[in-house]
């Protein structure tokens, strides 16, 4: 018997490209903030990972349902800890995000 998964149950990936100061512990800080805001909303947002493209630009990988929580966490970090953090791009395609990042890196 074949079992089909309904299309809306498939969780799509979202990649958030973030510019930050050199050596900034983005994964730890984002996880900590997500824990705080998750506590406020009685939800959990732990499944994120960070890909470091270079020293200043990283990509946060999150699921579609938790991308707004991740963006909120970055906003909170920007206002409370590190005002240099900026969100450069957001996409469901890692290749596109890498292209955007490399274009920004070349400009610098």
């Amino acid at each position: 018997m074949k079992f089909k998964i309904p299309i809306d149950l498939k969780e799509r990936r979202r990649y958030v490209c973030v510019r930050h100061p050199e050596g900034y512990p983005l994964l730890d800080k984002t996880r900590k903030t997500l824990m705080i805001i998750g506590g406020l909303k009685c939800l959990s947002y732990s499944k994120i990972s960070v890909i470091n493209l270079n020293r200043e630009i990283s990509v946060i990988r999150a699921s579609e349902s938790s991308v707004k929580a991740v963006l909120t966490a970055i906003l909170i970090l920007k206002y409370t800890e590190c005002s240099e953090i900026d969100v450069i791009g957001l996409s469901g395609n890692l290749r596109k995000i890498k292209e955007v990042c490399s274009r920004i890196h070349d400009k610098q």
């Binding site: 909303k41 991308v67 707004k68 963006l71 909120t72 906003l75």
Partner: peptide
């Protein structure tokens, strides 16, 4: 970012 903040 503002939109996702209020949404969340």
């Amino acid at each position: 970012l503002m939109i996702s903040f209020s949404e969340f």
